[in-house]
Structures are given as structure tokens and as C-alpha cells.
Design a protein around this nucleic acid. Sequence first.
DNA 1: TTGTGCCTC
DNA 2: CAACGAGGCACAA
Length: 552
Amino acid sequence: MAGTSDVATEKCSPAESLGVMKLNDHKAGMQGLDTAKINQIIEEASKGSQFYQHKQKNQERINAKIANLKASCAKLSEEQKKLGRAKMDSLARKLELMRDLSRTIVHVDMDAFYAAVEMRDCPELKTKPMAVGSSAMLTTSNYHARRFGVRAAMPGFIAKKLCPELVIVPTNFPKYTEVSRQVQKVFADYDPEFSAASLDEAYLDITDFLIARKDAGAEMTAAEAVEEMRAKILESTQLTASAGIAPNGMLAKVCSDKNKPNGQFVLENTREAVMEFIKDLPIRKISGIGNVTEQLLGSLGVGTCRDLWDKRELLYLLFSESSYDYFLRVALGIGSFGGDGSERERKSVSCETTFRSTSEHEELCDIIRQLSNDLAQDLERLGLTGRSVTLKYKTDKFDVKTRITQLLDPTRDGAVIAKAALSLLPVGLHLRLLGVRMSQLTSPAVTGNNNSSRKQRTLDELLLAAECPARKKRKLDAQVSNSLTEPDPTTTTPLLFTCPVCHSWRTSDGEVALNSHIDECLNQQVLYPETTSTGCSSSQAKLDRYVIRRAK
DNA sequence: TTGTGCCTC
DNA sequence: CAACGAGGCACAA
């Protein structure tokens, strides 16, 4: 919700690079507005500012990229295209084999969450256009405000020009966190392992819940279950939620937007239903395709998922492996990972702050020291130390740079972090933002050899157990999958596992050998697809991981 | 490894 | 007057 996604920069001719600031109006509650008038006001308020100039420069870079892409495209021979199409068709067959229609995934999204909470707690606001945030930036707006073009990721002072009577309420994170906890309690009734994507959004797999109901003689449809869940959320929080029900997270997310607010949408678990749904879907609706990707693909004539399929040979020939793999998954309506909110290990911790632009060295040093102390506290709270310190800074022209340095030993000492970060600070620049990040994280609480990933994971589990059982479980799952490619050095017994395709037992004789074995199996499966129908869902999961590794 | 860019909420 | 903050991943050199 609190989107930072840049205001949609719709296609604009290179000649007049105006329109860089255009309103992003393809979200819920924004249909049928006088966008011309709104855009004019936004343009007016932005023109000439450093931010605006930065946006323009950025758009020019994108335009150059597009020109490049088009040039490469024009050079392609028919021969190459034919080959590219064949490659993609082969990949598509593999993906098709892994298509899993056995699960019922739900994406739940609270409606205008922060704004809804504030309206609930202050009824006078209900009839007024209001937004949560500050004059510098809004995180959410209510539906009344959206009629004026006021939306998340818009600076409050511009929103005021669009809607002078707009009430701006400051954010109250502790409150939203508390409400979020209540909502998540309801989620847990339907999937104890649900995965929270943010305070107001989560992915649930209700397959087992539905089976349990049926076994108990109280069968209900997915739609009924989700209606009930949303009613429970309303009851316990007085807030409405929208939901999407689909065979995978990627599609469920799109579906939850369909009948927003206070609605839901079911996509049947059949290939036909999925392909019909995906056909005319604008690619921008898919999580992971943002402003830039939309423009790049748009320049190739790709606007919908069907276009993605029709032009698949171009994707293969012009983009990286992980990109065309992802695009093909989208074109086929097959979920990918990460986009479905699966839990991941934390890789970094950071603090940053924006301030009135200055070039005063001592002032900047003070800010870095402050940030370093804040970061040290966060690390302390999380029970982590780290070995890499990154300094991030943004100039008054909005250019962002990062510099990184390695420490000799992992630390969470604020003074040590500050010293490292200060050494990265360039002199004589006008800056408006500074940030300090710690990465290469390790857990220091293990005495002695603190680099053992085995011990680290164990400790993470202990820490996680305190906060959320579902997360703990997911971590353990991740650990199991890791053992597939990273044999635990502390054990001497060789690991055994079954090939997800042929189900034969294999020893862990290395990732390469394993992958080539699976490749062989898959190729055979493509020739004899009928043999795959027996594959159970757990082998599906392993296959998914296999593809992740290959894509990398 | 270092640094940038894109993307998400 | 005035355009966030935190985090992950891909990619290139």
C-alpha cells in the first residue's frame, strides 16, 4: 500500500519529455477522474524543482535504454527468432509440467489500511477527504481523497493543491502494528503458516483448511471461507479487507485488486480459467513489473500477458535468463517465488534519514554518528552483528550513491560502525539524505566459531520462535531445502534425497550432477507428459527450488 | 566485491 | 518551503 513506486510515467514522446510526473491512476478508487486537470496541477506544482529535473533525467536514461532495445531488436534475423521461439517453447513445456493447480491461495489486502484505521478512531474524518503521512509524503489516502487524485506516494503539499480541504493525519505505526496483529489472528485460523507481506497484506494457503472442513462434514467453498474470514476481520477490527483466491500467489495478488474495496474475486483452479484471466491482463498489474519494465516491454509492443507470450522470442533474445524465465511464468500464469510472500532470511539492516540539504561536514558527521547508533540498537534488538558497512547518500540533485567497506570482525558497536561509515563520506557535497546499512550478517551469540551457518540458523530459530510460530516453521523448511545444495559440514553422513521427477534415490554428489540428472528426467517427461500426473505436491515444491537455483 | 538500478509496500 | 524509509534481488565491471 504505502507505495514508493514512482508516479507512473506514461509513455511520452522523447521530444517533449513532459508528462514525467503524471498521476498513476490505474489503482483502486481512481477510475473516471479528470486526469488531464489533475496532471496539469501536479505538473504545475512540480515544474522546475530538483526532484522534477531528476525525474526527467531518469526518464531520458530509460528512453536511451528503449532506443537500445529497439535497435537490438531490429538487428535480429528470422533465423534467430525461430531459434528463440523454439527455446521458449521448450522452457514453456517444462514450466507447464510444474504448473500446480492443487492449491488454493488467498491474498488478503486491507482496504486503505492506515487511513481506515484513523477513520475508525476519529469518525469526523469519515466524511472528509483525508490521508495519512506528512506534507512531505503521504502513505495512504481514503477513497474520498482519491476522487481528487490524492494517493499514496504523493507529497502532501501537492495533494493539498489538488484538494485544499484534505486532512493529513500523521502516521501512528504502533497503532497499525497492533491492528495488524488482530487481523493476523484471524489469518491464523485459516492457515497457521500464513505469510505476511506487510502490515496490511498476507498470503494464505487454505487448501488444508478446506480439506479439514470437508473431512469434518462441514464442507465449504473457498469463496465461502474467505467471505467468512473477511467477516471475522470486520468484526474484530471494524475494518474491511479485500481478497483474491487463485491457484498461486502471483494470481491471487492480482485478484485481490479486482473487487477492491471490500470485495473478493475467485479464479478457478483450471488451466483454462487461468489463461482466460491472464489473456488481456496488463503486465503492470503483476507484482514485479514496475514502471521501467512496463516501458521497456511496451516499446516492443508488449502490454498484456498475451503479448508476452506472442513475443516470447524477443524476450528470449533481448533479456537475461532470469528475466525471460520470469516473463514466461507470467505469460503462462504460473507463480514464481518470492512474489508470493514466502519468508526469507534477513540480509541487511539499515537506517536512513532525509534532512534539509547541507554540505557542512561536521553536521553530516553528526548525522552519521546518530544513524550508526540507531543501527547498533536495531542490531542489538535483532541479536545480529555484521561485517559490511554501507554508506548511502543522496545529493541535493537527488542522485543516490552507495559506498561499502568491510570490517575485520563482525560488530554491532555503534562507534565502530560510525568510524567505518565516516570513512566513506565524501567531502564537499550538498547532501539531503544519509543512510547506514549493515550486511554480511552473522549471529554473535554463538561462542567460538560464529561463522557456522548451522549454528546461526539454530539461533535464528530461537529468536524467531519468540515472535511468530509460522515464521519459525518456514525457516525450518528453508533449512531443509538448503541441505539439498549445501551439505552440512558438521555431519559426515552423506545426504540422501529423491529426484523430484523420477523419485529415485540420489546421493548428494553435488549440485551440478543433481541438476543434470533432473534435466534428463525433465526432458523425458516432456516427451512423455502423461507420466507426470502422479507427481505429488511435495515433489512440485522441490522442483520449484530446482528452478530457482538454475535461474540464478 | 562494489556499486547501480528496479521493485515492493 | 516542500518528493519517504526499509529492504531484496539482478546485473555489470
